[in-house]
Design a binder for these strands. Structure first.
Lengths: 252, 252
DNA sequence: TTTGTATAGTGTCTTTATTACACTAAGTAA
DNA sequence: TTACTTAGTGTAATAAAGACACTATACAAA
């Protein structure tokens, strides 16, 4: 049975497709995520906190759309980026405020939206958040403090965090959250924060050092009120070698 | 900066959204996948092999769309289903044959398509493949034999297989590919086939039995030209208990 | 200048998991 | 009766994970 797109089952409007970005950053204390505030007016009753995102352009693929949003917001290119998946419940616009806001910016507010979610990991200190075409205000917010977001963005955040935890437990992707030079203590804190569990210091060091992806630098911390730690840096080359074999025997 | 959807960057056509399903089945010998043949005429030069899929309806969420395709094709509901991700390269229609075929069925053949891929695991023997609105012919094909598929479906298949391997290595989802009663030998063969490696029989049994998700049945195989094996069945309740703790110490 | 405090840095022992390995049992087919 | 095929079972060696405590060194405060 040959058939054309069955418009009796649809409103005659094709859906919109957007990307939303969960941008993670680590400040050596807690995990943060970039949120934006947007709304129809300046009254705070119409403002909503959301994840940054945008509709995709015709001529770009999905990854490119995410990279574009990311660069416009942070000024950074070539950051660690991972697709989380597609979210497209037709009832995702449940909140009245979301509805109102949507009407103000979309030509076809009644068309459904499917969004492709990405998460990215970047070093916060490299990153200057910029207000952009899709966001009046942009800020870092502690993931632990976020209780509500527009649309289904809270679900997207939770799913992204789960994926990140799972990835981090099997591959050392967390180095993307740290500056070029960092200490083993900072690295461990990052693992503990994201995986939400204490790790024994000596066992942690043994495991990381066996991976052999860190280079010890001569330089030490300064200005800390305790014994200064040596800095280490991440060794890209070794990491890529390991990537090929899939980190078979690594995990926290 | 408030803004409406910027149509200067687009053709004025919203994209189409489809789901594509990678339906895996295991015949105790090899891993198979459901493919469909479709095309503009009966001439084989215009026929293309593809993954089954369909455009989504306005009133269904993405999972529902995948379930609908799956049921229409196999007659089965409530099968194991996992989202793989979104694929949406604007150049995914590279092949001339794909282009021609698209023109014949879409009202807006020039609109881009983003597809959400799913994979599902089901027991082949429960499944009667049915020709459907989206497929003139439907058949099982050995995954290992598939060298070419329409659009970006080969990439989707590869990604799905990778995800399946990864999942299977950490959670015993493979039981969804087997009949209700099966032998440990069949279970092992399934692991070996999908993970593409030999596993030691005794070590395999030890590991599986420690999971404690299988119930030994009194019934034995009949008609086999060797010592008959006891059948076992999968224990759903124990599996769900384990799922909560995340199969921390399980892996092949 | 002494004391307090905070993190750095290091080794061993125990427990648990992984790997490697070989024979007998019980069916069918020839 | 024999050949063939898969079922079913245990142990020893090696590797990984987990638990655990002290000294070193910087700064801050008294």
């Amino acid at each position: 049975m040959n058939r054309a797109y069955n418009h009796t089952k649809n409103k005659g409007l094709n859906p919109n497709i957007s990307v939303d970005c969960v941008i993670f950053g680590f400040d050596f204390e807690k995990l943060n995520v970039v949120t934006i505030r947007r709304g129809t007016g300046n009254g705070s009753e119409l403002m909503r906190t959301a994840l940054p995102g945008d509709l995709i352009y015709d001529n770009e693929n999905l990854d490119m759309a995410a990279e574009r949003v990311l660069e416009e917001l942070t000024g950074l290119k070539d950051v660690y980026l991972e697709q989380v998946g597609a979210f497209g419940d037709p009832n995702r616009v449940r909140n009245k405020k979301d509805e109102k806001w949507l009407k103000s910016i979309r030509e076809q507010p009644e068309a459904r939206v499917v969004t492709i979610a990405y998460y990215s990991l970047l070093p916060m200190e490299k990153c200057q958040l910029l207000a952009s075409s899709f966001a009046k205000s942009v800020q870092w917010e502690a993931v632990a403090d976020i209780k509500d977001l527009a649309f289904d963005h809270l679900e997207i955040l939770k799913t992204s965090l789960d994926k990140l935890k799972n990835k981090l437990a099997h591959q050392p992707v967390g180095v993307n959250l740290l500056p070029e030079k960092f200490t083993l203590g900072q690295l461990q804190k990052m693992y503990e924060t994201i995986l939400d569990k204490k790790i024994d210091k000596r066992n942690f060091r043994r495991k990381i050092q066996k991976l052999d992806i860190l280079t010890l630098l001569d330089e030490k911390q300064t200005g800390v009120p305790h014994k200064p730690s040596h800095y280490v840096k991440f060794n890209d080359k070794k990491y890529r070698e390991l990537s090929e074999t899939g980190f078979d025997n690594f995990g926290f």
